[in-house]
Design a protein around this nucleic acid. Structure first.
Length: 738
DNA sequence: GGGTCCCCGTTTTTT
DNA sequence: ACGGGGACCC
């Protein structure tokens, strides 16, 4: 990532890999013993430090690769780290415990599954399975799944797991009256059910591993023996469970090095605790701290903008980034009429930079548009399509989240683990086999009554002739087929077996039929994905290997690589860098996002600000920030105020391009007035102003207060009883019928 | 068992 | 606006 340094290092006997490090980096590498916190600002070479540190530990003989535990959050990060360490050393580093928190926990848990009441071939549920299972449990417990959606309850349960709480450990005050006060009971039932079907969700991988370490000191001791050095990437993203897990493991050797940046903590909504990094030195005795503040990425204008903005945050450790790059363009802020104009501006800017003869050559892949929310990408996509600017939207649906891939994987699950109820349920009537709701009910009841897996129960009912003739025949056939494929696995290559299975059970045929219809242009793509899946299968030793991989690792990286502009969310951009970055949508309500402010107050605002900081620091040379006067959200036009973050940028590093701002004032005093001539465009905002359209009892929606019913109408004023925010009186133009 | 209509929700997302 | 999911009906 860093250009100033050579990336290929000569050989392992000569620690020349240390030569290119600056003093702070060197310190971070050489303080090998004890607890060390490396506060690594954006673009300060943190991955370099981590990998060099590992190389150094191995190279100086402090530890063998298999005595090092290095944890990351994403598979991408762990892959990168593996590659970089390997290229630095001649040693074989394959024995190193390098991986994501989840993959390492899974590895450990498979070795000791029996000790905690699982079998070692437990399945790992994905988000979809989790919710489906939870929903079933809620229904069994008589919870109204409309009033309390499974998705919400799931996130609450995940929250408990993130904190390291088993059902009996949920602290009072955190259970509240979720799900009619039955949340803990549901959580408990959910965990029991998972255990019954020998399955874990992602949160469990950590929770169970942590619980096991706490309850089985002998097992923990084994790992104390294994891990002499522990390294943690993106430490600011750890949740409580991960923190406790790390602390337990580090107890023995005391050698733990955590690298992170409190200013880039943007995942509190999924359990990350900035607190972990803020109190590091209290938690680990004699901890040392090294700050990496030399930035190798951005120009000083960009860095100044980032620093000035983030300085507005109160809860931070505080560091100041420096750069030697003093030339360069100022940060440019542009004010536009609406989202389409914004996209037009960005597209034009890209066009002129890529076609200009006089200026340096800009490659498409060095542009990035970083948005706050997914819906913002559309305007850019449309504009880029019209102008023929190649682009990719990074981080859409992941490969394994696609319906057809999930179906195919469910088939493989049933093949390998017939008692995987969730998988069997998924494919029992896909393609349509004429097993309807009522037949399913019967199968479930039998399965539950006898406490046997759905698969076995179905087989039993088929044998006993307990099913309607047609269903019995169809199911019998399907079960026979599965038995047959299972036998085939002994002497036929597994990818061939899977292909045959998907073919003969009619699954591929289902999509082929679909492709023939006119209305489904995506069916062809699904078939292509399935072919890709089968191709991928061949690369694995066995289907078992494949399933482990798929549940933990499968990437969306059908890396449409090549010369394309990148469009992605700010969250997805963390860790990346581009020559030119566009940050659109800097408006109050969108960025900072209203919901973040509503739900988390000043903490939410600070996290939004960190997100802005992450966005700014992605840019190497050019940074454009835009905001629009009008934006359509849920098909409703709203006019918006410029983001407060704009006022936090330092005037001397910013150029305001053609807007109605008064440049003579200091930037923080400038008034942002979206006083714009209405061009030739009608403002469709007038919708919903017609009071006659509202009637007593109407259900309405308000951007801030949510949903509610109209109690009373007084001319243009509506008395509304909002579901969550109580009674308010509002002008009718502020609400819309829902 | 399958088609149709209505209601809800619509920030960020890894594993 | 729009898609997904559930209720309802045939």
């Amino acid at each position: 990532m860093q250009h100033n340094h050579a990336d290929n290092l000569p050989n392992s006997d000569n620690p020349s890999y240390l030569a290119n490090l600056n003093n702070e980096q060197l310190e971070a590498v050489e303080i090998t013993d004890g607890a060390l916190l490396v506060l690594a600002g954006a673009g300060t070479g943190k991955t370099r430090v981590l990998t060099t540190r590992i190389a150094h530990i191995i190279n100086t003989g402090l530890a063998y690769p298999n005595q090092i535990l290095a944890v990351t959050f994403t598979n991408k990060a762990s892959r990168e780290m593996t590659e970089r360490v390997a290229s630095m050393l001649h040693h074989d580093v394959s024995g190193m415990w390098l991986g994501t928190f989840h993959s390492i926990c899974a590895k450990i848990l498979r070795r000791h599954a029996e000790a905690i009441g699982f079998q070692s071939n437990f399945t790992i549920l994905d988000a979809d399975d989790q919710v489906r299972l939870l929903k079933k449990i809620m229904e069994e417990a008589g919870i109204d799944t409309k009033k309390h959606t499974p998705k919400i309850l799931m996130s609450i349960i995940q929250g408990y797991k993130d904190k390291g709480w088993n059902p009996d450990q949920v602290q009072s005050g955190f259970a509240g009256d979720f799900a009619d006060g039955k949340i803990v009971q549901i959580y408990d039932a959910y965990q029991r059910r998972l255990r019954n079907i020998n399955a874990m969700d992602f949160g469990d991988l950590l929770l169970h591993c942590l619980t096991m370490f706490q309850k089985k000191p002998d097992i923990l001791a084994t790992y104390h023996g294994f891990f002499k050095y522990i390294l943690v990437d993106e430490y600011q993203d750890t949740n409580v469970a991960q923190y406790m897990w790390l602390r337990l493991l580090a107890q023995a050797s005391g050698n733990i090095c955590c690298v992170g940046d409190d200013d880039q903590s943007i995942y509190s909504w999924r359990g990350a605790q900035v607190g972990n990094i803020l109190r590091f030195s209290k938690d680990f005795p004699n901890a040392q701290t090294v700050k990496l503040e030399q930035n190798y990425r951005s120009t000083h204008h960009i860095l100044a903008a980032a620093s000035s903005l983030i300085a507005n945050n109160k809860s931070r450790i505080g560091k100041t980034l420096h750069t030697t790059s003093i030339d360069g363009e100022t940060v440019r802020v542009k004010f536009l009429w609406d989202g389409d104009e914004e996209a037009k501006f960005v597209a034009n800017e890209i066009e002129s930079m890529t076609t200009s003869m006089t200026r340096e050559k800009h490659s498409m892949s060095q542009f990035a548009v970083l948005v706050r929310a997914g819906f913002q990408t559309r305007a850019f996509e449309e504009r880029f399509l019209t102008l023929n600017i190649p682009y990719k939207v990074v981080g859409g649906l992941r490969f394994y989240e696609r319906a057809e891939i999930r179906d195919a994987i469910a088939y493989i699950h049933v093949l390998m683990q017939p008692n995987n109820d969730l998988a069997f349920e998924r494919i029992i009537n896909t393609p349509k086999r004429g097993i309807g709701k009522s037949s399913l009910e019967v199968l479930y009841r039998n399965s539950r009554d006898q406490s046997i897996p759905l698969y076995d129960s179905t087989a039993q009912m088929v044998n006993d002739g307990a099913l309607p003739a047609k269903a019995g025949k169809v199911m019998g056939e399907l079960l026979n087929q599965f038995a047959n494929y299972r036998r085939m696995l002994n002497d036929v290559e597994h990818d061939k077996v899977v292909e045959q299975m998907l073919e003969e059970t009619g699954y591929l045929g289902m999509w082929r039929d679909e492709a023939k219809k006119e209305r489904s242009p995506e069916a062809e793509g699904r078939l292509e994905n399935l072919r890709e899946l089968i191709r991928a299968l061949a690369e694995f030793e066995s289907l078992g290997d494949f399933l482990e991989h798929i549940s933990l690792v499968m990437d969306n990286d059908q890396n449409k690589s090549g010369e394309m502009v990148n469009i992605m969310t700010l969250h997805a951009a963390k860790g990346l860098e581009f020559d030119t970055v566009f940050l659109p949508g800097w408006e109050e309500g969108l960025f900072p996002h209203q919901r973040s402010l509503d739900e988390s107050g000043s903490g939410g605002l600070e996290e939004e600000r960190r997100l802005a900081y992450v966005g700014i620091t992605r840019a190497r040379k050019n940074l454009f920030i835009t905001h629009a006067a009008n934006r359509r959200i849920y098909n409703q036009w709203q006019n918006s105020m410029p983001s407060r973050f704009l006022k936090e940028l330092p005037a001397q590093n910013v150029d305001i391009l053609s807007s109605n701002l008064n440049m003579s004032q200091p930037i923080y005093e400038r008034k942002f007035e979206p006083r714009v001539e209405p061009l030739n465009r009608a403002i469709p905002a007038a919708k919903g102003i017609d009071t006659n359209a509202f009637q007593m009892g109407n259900r309405v929606f308000h951007e801030k207060f949510g949903y509610g019913y109209i109690n009373n109408i007084n001319g243009d004023n509506l008395d509304i009883n909002f579901d969550h925010t109580g009674k308010k009186t509002l002008k009718s133009s502020f609400v819309k019928k829902s």
